[in-house]
Design a binder for these strands. Structure first.
Lengths: 417, 417
DNA sequence: GCGATAAGTTCATTCGTATAACAAATCTCA
DNA sequence: TGAGATTTGTTATACGAATGAACTTATCGC
């Protein structure tokens, strides 16, 4: 075959620039962007305030380069300088740096089966304001729910601005309990939603209220978002987050990044088969984990009708409740061990109702994982539960916006003149 | 807390340079390296020879930059220029570029249960020479086997050099059937090996024969290597490779990269539980996939003692053989659907004995995957089998060396004066 | 044989980082 | 109390990689 001739490429400057950044071409601009991100991430990931010299030592950049980059980040209000600390050390006192708080924030929005929620998080990863509205959104009307959600988000932003007048919005992420592909919600069985573009109405409502997020709106799966609440800024975290909402979802975090899979459909732990001959699941298959460890399944099997009642029954040593949790733990161990054998993750973190009953799940889960996971003899998996948050996916979605800013700060910095 | 003071860092030039490249600091040198890799990868991944102008259009780099980078790659003997093709097109004829063949090659080595093997692959990804030595390496002596393997590798290299006198060795990768962590083999149950540093003896034997690989030796899991033989240069491949050797291993390829997991222990599909009450597996657990679809399990259940006999029985419609493969397919579907639900992979490729019986596995496997994988209604997974290769891991290990060269060509280019 | 077209090269420019020297601010020890 | 040590942060210069525009080379079409 002769040399392939690509379809004629109109060499508009804009187009070629877009092509350049889309593909992997490294330019000096991308070099600067990467180092800005490196510096900002370093500042953000450190517990204690960090000096320019510390950043230089930790990143490998020179002091002069760090100095220039930090100056730009300060000018763009992404980093705050504190007063020089003058204690103990010899030499010129260092200027402490921290991510700016009160200037740029991320908004996380969540639609779930029993609530909608919003959360505002600043660049330090701290919650500025949170709202949650309970309701029953099974088979709900998407347009109405999204409009309501946007109002909750706006209220959350207004509350934040009341405390911090200089606030501006870095972006919005929407967490949904279903299969999300790019900006499209393909299917959310528990909501009865399918084939939907949820972002445009949200964008319009926000813009109408004076909170224009520009192009910075994203959609993601609920579990993928909630998993981010577990990452405490540590950069190289690897773990499996298991979300016990109405269904059971999960998210694998590898190297601090959520593994969303090619289409963003990864993490369907709830539909891993744990018993081939088991009961029919809503997905059409048999013996899925969800049938044994889903919220409804556990409650039914325990013979109670709320999580509070379940915990009370467990505390009183009720045999039926203990049996229900026992069998849920057994099923969970089979599915989670599949995930760990496939992905080699050292940590498992449970959320939602699985966190509520964690004390009773733990014995079965840990002992079974130790026997089922091939690498357990070398490094037994750690199992833990998150502290309870009424809407972890909203917080996680806001944290995702923060992560995007940290990873590409140049997009949120004014063009240089 | 006051500003943390890092332990005093001796500012040796070498040390600081190492720190700079180890962490993510982007320098102009790394920029050049990345673009060199981009150009070389582009040249290597295209089926038909590519011109400088094509590379520029495809990567987004300018023609002048590509020209300079290509010149360097040609000078370093990583890229070959062909004669200008003067057909059809108007304008100055393009100079076709291809990865150099016959200059730099990767050596792949494999120890398996019934053979050791070596393979030499050039930068085009084409096999230059292959050797395989059958034997029984169950509970073998590592030192003796590794010495034998090194001799097989040297023979393979000598054979290659006989054809291509200017040959030099880019690196060596060793594929082992077990848990590999960095350069250490933790455990290879089928070989009876454990806690071993397999690379030093190999390096010494090669160096003694005049094939010094420098520091370029690596170790990896057998399935992770074999999976690379399935990637036909396409850059953004996502798939699950299932290796049917004595055990069953697997490797998930995401974005063209093998997902090895934090310690390199990912991909233990063979020990995913498919039937909780099932027979005991060698790993100590019950009902693992390996117990139903491992080579020995299928042969025993079919009542034959070789793969050839199994195929003959299947061809003649033997009910017992058909039943054995049917139940293997059923178990395989449960484990693979777990992997697909967790990882969102669009393709499954079977190797080893699973490829041999693929025609009989396919009906069960595809229909069950379509019902068990949650995203199947949107995009049903493709299932296929590799063409048979006696030692795919050796070839894949050699391809891994090639991949490393393509991803960081600067390391194999002479320092510029 | 001339113009159009495309590939490849050359050269001045731009921009981000490195290097090295310098200024600033504090502590230590005589 | 003051000189030297030490560390932080800044400034000036150099270097290197990509860019963009102009140029050369080589072919095809008419």
């Amino acid at each position: 075959m002769s040399i392939a001739k690509p379809a004629s490429i109109s060499a508009t400057a804009a187009l070629s620039a877009a092509a350049r950044s889309a593909s992997g071409a490294a330019t000096q601009a991308s070099l600067r962007e990467r180092n800005l991100a490196l510096v900002l991430t370093q500042v953000a990931s450190s517990e204690s305030p960090t000096s320019r010299a510390d950043v230089a030592a930790l990143t490998g950049l020179t002091r002069s380069t760090v100095s220039r980059l930090v100056d730009e980040l300060v000018a763009a209000a992404l980093v705050d300088e504190g007063d020089p600390v003058t204690g103990g050390q010899r030499g010129r006192p260092a200027v402490p740096l921290r991510p700016a708080s009160g200037t740029l924030v991320g908004l996380g929005l969540e639609v779930n089966v029993w609530h909608v929620a919003a959360s505002v998080v600043d660049l330090r990863g701290q919650s500025v304001s949170n709202r949650i509205v309970e309701g029953d959104f099974v088979d709900s009307d998407p347009a109405r729910v999204l409009a309501q959600l946007a109002q909750v988000g706006i209220a959350c932003l207004e509350e934040a601005r009341a405390a911090l007048p200089q606030l501006s919005l870095a972006g919005v992420q929407l967490a949904l309990p279903g299969l999300v592909d790019g900006a499209t919600l393909l299917r959310a069985p528990n909501l009865g939603w399918h084939d939907l573009q949820p972002l445009p109405p949200i964008r319009q409502a926000l813009a109408a209220a004076g909170w224009d997020p520009g192009g910075y709106l994203w959609t993601a799966n609920e579990a993928d978002c909630a998993a981010l609440t577990v990452l405490q800024g540590s950069r190289h975290d690897d773990l499996l987050y298991v979300s016990g909402e109405v269904g059971i979802g999960s998210a694998a975090i590898v190297g601090g990044q959520v593994m969303t899979g090619r289409h963003g459909w990864a993490g369907e732990l709830g539909h891993v088969c744990v018993n081939d001959g088991g009961p029919l699941c809503g997905c059409g298959s048999h013996g899925c984990l969800e049938v044994y460890a889903g919220r409804r399944a556990i409650l039914e099997k325990a013979g109670v009708d709320s999580l509070d009642a379940l915990v009370a029954a467990l505390r009183s040593g009720d045999a039926r409740a203990l049996g229900a949790v026992e069998s849920a733990g057994h099923a969970l161990a089979i599915a989670v061990s599949a995930a760990l054998n496939l992905l080699d993750l050292p940590r498992v973190v449970l959320g939602g109702h699985l966190a509520v009953v964690f004390d009773w799940l733990r014995p079965t889960l840990t002992s079974e994982l130790n026997s089922r996971v091939l690498s357990a003899p070398f490094s037994p998996p750690e199992v833990s539960a998150v502290s309870l948050d009424p809407a972890p996916a909203a917080v996680g979605a806001a944290l995702a916006v923060r992560q995007r800013v940290l990873a590409a700060p140049a997009s949120w910095m004014p063009a240089r003149g």
